[in-house]
Amino acid sequence: MQGVSVDDDAPGLAVAARGLGLKGPRGWAFRGIDIDAEPGALIAITGPSGSGRTCLLLALTGRMRPTEGSTTVGGHRLPRGMAALRRVSALAHVPGVTDLDPALTVGEHLRERALLQRRFGDGLRSLLRPRAERAATAAGRVDAALAAAGLDLRDLSKGPRTAVRDLERLEALRLSVALALIGRPGLLGVDDADLKLADAERAETWALLRSLTESGTTVVAVCSEAPEDAVTVTTAGDRTTGDRTTGPGTPAEGDETPGDESTPDETTHDESTDDAKEAADDALAETGRS
């Protein structure tokens, strides 16, 4: 089932950026990014491998510190508001950041995330509630997140006891989204949304992400090809706009070119080079990702 709101009191976050750029130890991950998206928008980040798509995703969710430009997400001005933005945003399916443990079961992942949310995400007041009330609230959140992510545990081979390594690629993506939704974020970032998916699976993925925006959550997704109804941002080139759809720009003289080994890139991609992965790790460390 899709289109189920995780939290009606947590509206999506508007995203506004002008000249957003991030420079790591080996050059520019991206720069010249302009975005204008309303709350509950579907934002698609496209571009060639090595052009900084995942770095942009992490910057828009408060996990990487921008180097230049003016950016406001949900009223939080970056970089000053990064910590506050992290509390109202979440990540799913980001290699090297939100990896699922293949040895754990689906149920174990869900219980662990619910426990972490209850201990660290809900504040002191929630910890003072009776144990039975806390447990019921946690169970309700998990059920709502699973429904919103379109993951029915009864359809899995062993139900909640199904190991992550036995999940299909789309099932693993849905589980990662569900785990992120337990925190009831106003903005959800999803990496590699359509990587290695068949056409029918890609259609299901975009239907899922679109259903989340219909319930009020702003979704930012890295992809190889954006749907027509998305606010599309392209990370190729020195000047990129996010006003519905754009094409790649032309790198300015002296800028790092997309895909160059000095450009911080996505945390992990099958088609990425080891140099790009190392550059991303360096950039994340320098900018204080959490």
Rank of each mutant, 00 (worst) to 15 (best):
residue 148 A to S: 03
residue 260 D to F: 02
residue 152 D to P: 12
residue 118 R to T: 03
residue 10 A to H: 13
residue 254 G to S: 06
residue 20 L to R: 00
residue 243 D to T: 13
residue 288 G to W: 11
residue 275 D to G: 07
residue 91 L to S: 15
residue 200 A to W: 14
residue 73 V to C: 02
residue 197 L to K: 06
residue 219 V to R: 15
residue 163 A to N: 15
residue 226 A to W: 09
residue 20 L to D: 00
residue 54 T to R: 05
residue 285 A to P: 00
residue 199 D to P: 04
residue 217 T to M: 03
residue 117 Q to R: 14
residue 39 P to S: 09
residue 50 G to K: 09
residue 157 S to E: 14
residue 158 K to R: 15
residue 148 A to R: 03
residue 35 I to C: 07
residue 177 V to A: 06
residue 132 A to S: 12
residue 201 E to V: 06
residue 261 E to N: 13
residue 161 R to T: 01
residue 52 G to I: 01
residue 202 R to L: 01
residue 217 T to Q: 11
residue 9 D to H: 15
residue 266 E to W: 10
residue 154 R to Q: 05
residue 270 D to G: 12
residue 11 P to C: 08
residue 178 A to V: 01
residue 181 L to M: 05
residue 138 A to T: 02
residue 97 V to M: 05
residue 244 R to P: 08
residue 164 V to N: 12
residue 137 T to R: 15
residue 19 G to H: 00
residue 33 I to H: 13
residue 243 D to G: 13
residue 37 A to Y: 03
residue 139 A to M: 01
residue 118 R to E: 15
residue 144 A to Q: 09
residue 52 G to H: 08
residue 271 E to Q: 06
residue 153 L to H: 12
residue 82 M to K: 14
residue 170 L to E: 14
residue 166 D to Y: 15
residue 1 M to H: 15
residue 15 V to C: 04
residue 162 T to E: 04
residue 233 V to Y: 05
residue 214 E to I: 08
residue 87 R to P: 00
residue 251 P to I: 00
residue 223 C to E: 07
residue 69 G to F: 00
residue 150 G to R: 09
residue 88 V to M: 08
residue 112 E to Y: 15
residue 284 L to D: 02
residue 64 M to S: 10
residue 201 E to Q: 08
residue 41 A to L: 01
residue 121 G to Y: 05
residue 79 P to E: 09
residue 250 T to Q: 14
residue 162 T to I: 11
residue 260 D to C: 14
residue 243 D to S: 09
residue 4 V to M: 07
residue 232 T to V: 03
residue 223 C to N: 08
residue 76 H to T: 07
residue 4 V to E: 08
residue 132 A to V: 05
residue 289 R to I: 10
residue 65 R to W: 01
residue 107 G to Q: 04
residue 32 G to A: 01
residue 110 L to C: 12
residue 75 G to Y: 02
residue 45 I to P: 09
residue 161 R to L: 06
residue 162 T to L: 07
residue 112 E to V: 12
residue 99 D to N: 15
residue 110 L to H: 06
residue 92 A to Q: 05
residue 40 G to S: 10
residue 287 T to K: 14
residue 265 D to A: 15
residue 288 G to P: 01
residue 125 R to M: 08
residue 161 R to N: 11
residue 176 S to E: 04
residue 81 G to P: 01
residue 257 T to F: 04
residue 49 S to F: 03
residue 170 L to T: 05
residue 54 T to Q: 05
residue 117 Q to S: 11
residue 147 A to T: 06
residue 38 E to K: 15
residue 110 L to S: 07
residue 124 L to R: 11
residue 71 T to K: 09
residue 247 G to I: 00
residue 99 D to Y: 13
residue 48 P to A: 00
residue 2 Q to S: 14
residue 153 L to N: 14
residue 254 G to R: 11
residue 42 L to M: 07
residue 15 V to K: 09
residue 284 L to S: 06
residue 232 T to H: 11
residue 228 E to T: 10
residue 153 L to R: 09
residue 229 D to L: 04
residue 8 D to M: 12
residue 285 A to T: 11
residue 107 G to V: 06
residue 263 T to L: 02
residue 82 M to L: 12
residue 170 L to W: 11
residue 41 A to E: 10
residue 23 K to C: 08
residue 152 D to A: 08
residue 100 L to W: 13
residue 26 R to A: 10
residue 106 V to W: 14
residue 237 G to T: 00
residue 156 L to E: 07
